[in-house]
Simulated scan of single mutants.
Amino acid sequence: MLGFMDYIQHAFHLASQWNSDNSYSSLTASARDILDFDIPRGLRFSVSSLSSPNFANSYTFGTSGVVDGSLSYLYSSLPLQVASRSKHIDLTELIRGYRHVLELRRPDNPWWWETWHRGKRVDRLATLLYGRLYVPASRLEALYLRRISPTRQVHLSCVSDERLQNGGTILALLQDDRAKSSTEYLFSTDSALLGVRGLYNFGPDPRSSTFPPNLLSRFSVGGELYYGLLNASGGCSTGLRFTTLPAHAGFPYTMTLTLNPLMGNLSSTYSVKAGRNLSMCSRFDFNFYSYESDFVVGWEVWRRRARPMESASDRLAEDVLSKPVPTLRDKEDDVEGVLKARIDQNWRIGLLWEGRIKELLVTLGASIDLRNRDQIARSVGLEIQYSS
């Protein structure tokens, strides 16, 4: 489940009309959300608040061997009119599962963003500032986001920690999203790393006046290249994705294939939303240098409140076609929770339940190793969030 500050950052992206899914780093997002969910360790409790449309704060306390916690503050120049109380937040905005890739949106013309008053330009660029201090480790994290044009965004993140080399690191990203393609240029002070990655979407160009609506699917290909100046080493990877779009009448599904030729890693995933409340995913990894392989499968089952305005035949048709059936009910969040599970070829099992109890957001998880008879339950954790 997303933390409150991650939820607010996502709201900032929506308010500033930035498509986070149209990037090479999000190529395998559906598979990661279903298979690579984090299992909490120990007990953790978070209290958060959106005290104004422009300011949010969060406090976290946890016990995982040692007592620790963090304090977080966020400022957005864009007023964020989103639900902030934990009992009102749509759980589908917090719980990440199968990722529906939406149709590409045509970028705004630059002059649409201009605001003039008495012959002077007075518009302000959308900016987000975020800081988080961990105690007692005295680790500091900071984030600076700024939309500099309808197609570009600057992303600057910093970490200060005495345990890191040189006492910390800085990562700078210049992101350019032109719908048809996207590019990211990065620099990190860690090893003076330089990199570039991009994604290209085949098919019609959304910037064209003849762009057809209701496309059924999309094929994308991308890659990344990076090089560390200080350690004189580099790397690269490439990948492709085929996914259905909302206009597709059958089951939504996504297939990806990624390759890292220097390390010899090949990975393929297949994710499918088999029904309104069920998604499944499988991933096969293979290294053609060592001939080692790995296989993992996962599921997520969503639980929803009963909807009395629907008939049983409507619910059955919706599950089969995975398309919403028109009803008379209000458009409100009807999700009560989701159960996630994964298992790999070594019989390591991960279980996670995420949902809402009264006004609390609860995450309960466990990691199980069936081959280790001495300690089958490797870890168990509980995380509770409350926001106002």
Rank of each mutant, 00 (worst) to 15 (best):
G198E: 02
D176H: 15
S237V: 05
Y227V: 04
D190V: 05
G235R: 00
N166V: 10
N214G: 06
G239Y: 00
S157F: 00
L164Q: 14
L171T: 12
Q165D: 11
G195N: 12
G203A: 08
K180H: 10
L174G: 10
L229G: 11
P206Y: 09
E224M: 02
G228M: 01
G239D: 07
S220K: 07
L173Q: 13
C158G: 13
A179Y: 04
D176A: 15
Y185F: 06
G168P: 02
Y200A: 15
R207G: 09
T243Y: 02
L174Y: 12
F202G: 12
N166T: 09
G203N: 10
T243I: 07
Y227K: 10
F202D: 08
Y227M: 10
F242W: 15
T169S: 11
E184S: 07
S182E: 03
A192W: 05
N214R: 06
G234I: 05
Y226T: 13
Y227L: 01
S209K: 08
F219V: 14
S217V: 12
S182K: 07
P212F: 03
F211R: 15
G203T: 13
G195K: 01
D190F: 01
Q165V: 13
T238Q: 03
G195V: 03
T244N: 07
Y227E: 08
G198I: 01
G228R: 00
A179N: 11
D177Y: 00
F211Q: 10
S191C: 11
L194P: 03
R218P: 04
D177R: 07
T238E: 05
L229I: 13
S157R: 14
A192S: 05
S233L: 01
G234H: 02
Q175N: 04
P212C: 03
E162M: 01
T210H: 11
R241A: 09
R163E: 08
Q175I: 02
G203M: 06
G222N: 10
L156G: 04
P204F: 01
Y185D: 05
L171G: 10
A192Q: 09
P213G: 14
P212R: 11
L173N: 15
G168H: 08
C158F: 07
L215T: 04
R207I: 02
R218D: 06
T244S: 05
S157T: 11
S157E: 14
E184G: 05
G228T: 11
V159K: 08
F202L: 08
P213M: 14
S237T: 12
S237F: 00
S209H: 05
S157Y: 00
R178T: 11
R163Q: 09
Y200E: 04
Q175K: 14
L229R: 11
G203I: 14
P213L: 06
L186K: 13
L156Y: 05
Q175L: 09
S233T: 03
L171A: 12
S217W: 01
Y226I: 13
F202H: 07
G223M: 06
S182L: 13
T189D: 04
V196D: 03
G223E: 09
S217N: 13
G222Y: 00
Q175W: 01
S217H: 15
C158L: 12
R241L: 06
A232K: 02
T210C: 04
G168V: 01
L216I: 04
N231A: 02
S217C: 14
G222A: 10
L216F: 08
F202M: 07
P204V: 07
Y226Q: 06
T243L: 03
G195A: 04
T244I: 01
S220I: 05
L230Q: 03
T189S: 14
S209N: 14
L194G: 10
L171W: 01
L164D: 13
